[in-house]
Nucleic acid binder design. Structure first.
Lengths: 245, 245
DNA sequence: CGGATTTTGCTCATTTTTGTTCATTTTTAG
DNA sequence: CTAAAAATGAACAAAAATGAGCAAAATCCG
């Protein structure tokens, strides 16, 4: 039996939401404890299942934090600096919009305790906001599985019915020639609406995004304040960059 | 017996809302005092139950509302039966709505692999749908922290722009005199819109909900099919009840 | 075919869980 | 109020589950 096939069979056995004993799976598949255990550990590593003490297994309950956490690990310190600075710009009474980027995600803990209403279309963001009991509104829409966020015409039409004091946006890259760019046209549409309906807007872009150009242009480089952690000398002429330390 | 399963069984035994002696639970489960005690202390730590002096236990006095994982533990087997039956009614190509109840939550694993679009206003539901890679749309709105769901005027206005083949709803209780009732008026509004915009509607109500009457009436008892796990003889005249086995 | 790599099942040390025993506290009955 | 009975909490030993190491078997590749 090929391991990958066996692991699929295990997932099939677990497809009901119940807790199942490793022993019964063992009998079902006719393999040894060790083999089954290795499979289960692999599946747990992939966040597909949860291993319980006492010999039980069940389907993983929630996995939405996975994607964003890998992104956050890239340059976490820089992003955290930017996030902290961005959060310090938020005042009591503000209504803010956050797009589903890893840097805005890191802002959330710094918002705890503030009297603020946060709108977002990011599922991970909503989960985090809820767990910190921050007043929030979900902008719904079709779910894009790769980024765990709401996109599409419904999201856009909802976005266009809200006005915010401040919005905080990420992007794929920024450069002198091409301005701020993003890789996804649907996300761009959301960002543009946020910029349109927000009194004040900020881009949160760590220095590793500099020089990167992707498919869709979101804004000119000098249009909005850009919070970043290092300002290359070639950008010294731009007064809208904010250095976060 | 796997500890997690045993703890779910304890919650099930306690689901009647009465005070129950540890001794009777001990006999029911056939475990020693120590083991039971350790389970009970764990459940108390999770705020799911209250331990009383003199060997008594009961469900935690709900300061707010029970969260979804606690709700799921109550009568999990019955709910799982109902969920499985409900999911079997879903066909490829369906567009369905699920409200944020624990029984609809249990439907989700059974939907995996089907060609279906799921709309929901439940955050936990969306997380689970995403992790099983089921095509889904989030109905946004203000977040109600106690139930992790979207409610309010925005949610209602979005709801009113969608039509579904089928909708699956929970409720707080049902009785002959008062029909199907719910404890929250905002949730009722969502349910009413779902019923209005769905070609076919189903209520998922396990037998422990029978005889419970709460604040707001959602529908008459005979209006929609009700999936349940036990049909009391007093309801034998109703043809819209579907027994799940 | 032969060598290298992966997979598998076994063994054993470690950790977790469980049931028993016993001292201490709380409740009940007289 | 006192004493017996029950419940509780802690300690301990047995049983089960877990994790790591290792050698045999299976698979892959040239």
């Amino acid at each position: 039996m090929i391991p990958a096939v066996r692991q699929e069979k295990i997932m099939e056995i677990l497809s009901s939401n119940e807790i199942i004993s490793t022993e019964s799976i063992m009998k079902d598949l006719g393999v040894s404890v060790s083999t089954l255990r290795r499979d289960l550990m692999k599946l747990e590593g992939e966040k597909k299942i949860t291993l319980l003490h006492g010999g039980g297994v069940r389907l993983a309950q929630r996995t939405t934090e996975l994607n964003i956490s890998t992104k956050m690990d890239l340059n976490r310190d820089a992003k955290d600096l930017i996030a902290k600075k961005a959060a310090s710009l938020v005042e009591d009474g503000d209504v803010i919009f956050m797009d589903p980027s890893s840097t805005t995600y890191l802002m959330i803990p710094y918002l705890a305790g503030k009297q603020v209403t946060v709108l977002t279309n990011g599922i991970s963001h909503i989960n985090q906001l809820i767990s910190l009991e921050i007043n929030c509104i979900m902008i719904g829409g079709s779910i894009k599985l790769t980024t765990n966020s709401c996109v599409g015409p419904l999201t856009e039409s909802i976005m266009d019915t809200f006005y915010f004091n401040k919005c905080f946006l990420g992007a794929s890259g920024f450069s002198i020639q091409s301005g701020i760019t993003n890789h996804d046209i649907n996300e761009k549409a959301i960002k543009v609406l946020a910029l349109k309906n927000s009194t004040q807007s900020y881009f949160l872009l760590d220095h590793t995004k500099y020089g990167i150009v992707t498919m869709v242009k979101v804004a000119n480089l000098e249009e909005y304040p850009i919070l970043t952690d290092k300002i290359p000398s070639s950008l010294s002429g731009y007064s809208n960059f904010v250095l976060c330390t």
